[in-house]
C-alpha cells in the first residue's frame, strides 16, 4: 500500500517561484480585463460622443483606475517573465560561439523598449 502524498491547497505559497508562477498565470485575467475594457471603449465610440464621454468619466473613477493599474502591473509582470524566459528557449550561435543568455534577454528587453517608445511617440506626437 503506497501512500499518496496530498498536494496542499496553499502549495503555491511555499516558494517565491511558485508565487510568481501563480501570479503570472493570474495575469491572464488582467489581459482579459484589458480586452473587455477596450471593447467597451469601441462600443462607446460607435454609439457617439455622449457615450464616449460617459465611458471616459467611468474610466476616471478611482475604482476603475485602481483596477487598471493592477491589471497593468500584472501585464508588466507577464512581459518581464516572458522576456526572461527568452534566453532559455533561444540558443543563438554566432561564429560557433554561443551568445550569452544575458545578451539574448537584453536584446528582447531592448526591442520591447524601442517598440514601446515608438508607440508612445505615435500616441503623443502624431495624434
Amino acid at each position: 500500500m503506497t501512500y499518496h502524498q496530498p498536494v496542499p491547497l496553499l502549495w503555491w505559497t511555499r516558494r517565491r517561484s511558485y508565487v510568481v508562477f501563480v501570479l503570472r498565470e493570474l495575469s491572464s485575467v488582467a489581459v482579459a480585463w484589458f480586452v473587455v475594457h477596450f471593447l467597451l471603449l469601441v462600443t462607446a465610440v460607435h454609439r457617439g460622443p455622449g457615450a464616449y464621454q460617459e465611458f471616459l468619466d467611468w474610466s476616471a473613477r478611482p475604482l476603475i483606475l485602481v483596477v487598471n493599474l493592477v491589471a497593468l502591473a500584472f501585464v508588466v509582470l507577464h512581459a518581464v517573465t516572458w522576456f526572461n524566459l527568452a534566453p532559455k528557449a533561444l540558443v543563438v550561435r554566432v561564429q560557433g560561439q554561443q551568445v550569452p543568455p544575458r545578451m539574448i534577454a537584453a536584446g528582447h528587453f531592448g526591442a520591447w523598449f524601442v517598440v514601446s517608445a515608438i508607440v508612445a511617440w505615435v500616441l503623443v506626437v502624431m495624434l
Partner: peptide
C-alpha cells in the same frame, strides 16, 4: 508553465526548464 524550479533543484546543472522551453 515554466515555474523553473526543476532547474533550481537539479544537482547536476542539467537545466530541464531550458530544455523544455527550447523544445516549445
Amino acid at each position: 508553465t515554466y515555474v523553473g524550479e526543476c532547474t533550481r533543484a537539479c544537482p547536476k546543472g542539467v537545466d530541464p526548464a531550458g530544455a523544455i522551453q527550447r523544445y516549445k
